[in-house]
Amino acid sequence: MSDSKSAAGKANALAGQIYQRLKDDISNFALLPGDRFTETEMAERYGVSRTPVRDALYRLEREGYLQVAFRSGWSVRPFDFHRFDQLYDLRIVLELAAVARICEAEQPADLSALQAIWSLPREQRLTDGKQVGELDEAFHQGLILATGNLEMARVHQEVTDKIRIVRRLDFTRAPRIDLTYDEHQEVLRLLTQRKAAQAAINLRSHIEASKAEVHKITLHMIYEARQRGLVGAAG
């Protein structure tokens, strides 16, 4: 019994590793929107059997990254910017509701943990895009959690998970990282002063600017990846 459990655990761990590698390849545009492939090709690519690859592929299909057809195998889903826009709109609704609740609450919300991260002098700010991206997610989730409404937090986390593939690109440019620090500081200042209307305006502008930036970067990165592919094929 223990041997079978051990084997199952190793199989699950391997499937998890392949899942993450596939997801990274999609996120980094090593696999482009519309690219087609088979389970066998992916197994050869990662040097494993088809079983963990199949498990990883179906997991990514459930999460919306891939699609499968009976006769033509697997493909990376095309970017659906309309869907991303809708998710960003939902995110704005949730976060503006959080701003109103924070400013209207009888007891001031404890925003000290967020202030400690974002109210830093310029020379102490992080510059690594991946780290800042993770902190940015935590900042916006922190605003929701400050309301005490766990159902809002759950839905907001689901939205965050779905837009992560494009949202993380906002932190691949140094000026955007600095701007994120500045804008988060200002939102926190306004919330502390309970200036709900101005905080809402600033937060909406912050999210809309980020959405526009990731649209632009995504299209540029896809174009560059396709050009590299064409050059490689020509070579």
Score class of each variant (00 low, 15 high):
I207E: 02
V76L: 01
T51E: 12
L120E: 07
A109R: 07
I102E: 11
E183M: 11
P121D: 12
A200C: 06
Q107M: 12
K195R: 14
T147K: 03
I102S: 08
D170L: 13
Q198F: 05
H215R: 15
T147Y: 06
Y46T: 00
S2R: 11
D182C: 02
Q157C: 05
R83Y: 10
L60A: 07
L145Q: 12
A30E: 06
Q157K: 15
C103G: 14
A109N: 06
I222S: 01
Y19A: 05
L143K: 01
G129Y: 01
G73C: 01
A209V: 02
A8M: 08
I92T: 12
R36L: 05
N28M: 04
L145T: 08
V53I: 04
D3H: 11
L87K: 05
R36A: 10
V187N: 07
L230D: 05
E183D: 13
L120V: 15
A174F: 13
N28D: 13
L96F: 07
K5D: 15
R176E: 13
Q86H: 10
E208D: 15
V48T: 13
A100V: 14
V214H: 03
I222W: 02
G64W: 02
R164D: 03
L190P: 05
H184P: 05
K10H: 10
L143G: 02
G235C: 04
T180N: 08
K195L: 09
M42H: 03
Q185N: 13
A113Q: 10
K162H: 14
R71N: 06
D136P: 00
M1S: 13
K162T: 06
T192C: 09
K216S: 13
L191W: 06
H220W: 10
I163E: 07
I165P: 02
Q67A: 08
L111W: 03
G142Y: 04
A100K: 14
Q20Y: 06
W118H: 10
H156N: 10
L111M: 01
D80G: 03
T160V: 04
T160A: 07
L179I: 03
Q115C: 11
K10S: 11
G129A: 01
Y181S: 08
Q185A: 15
L143E: 03
R122Q: 15
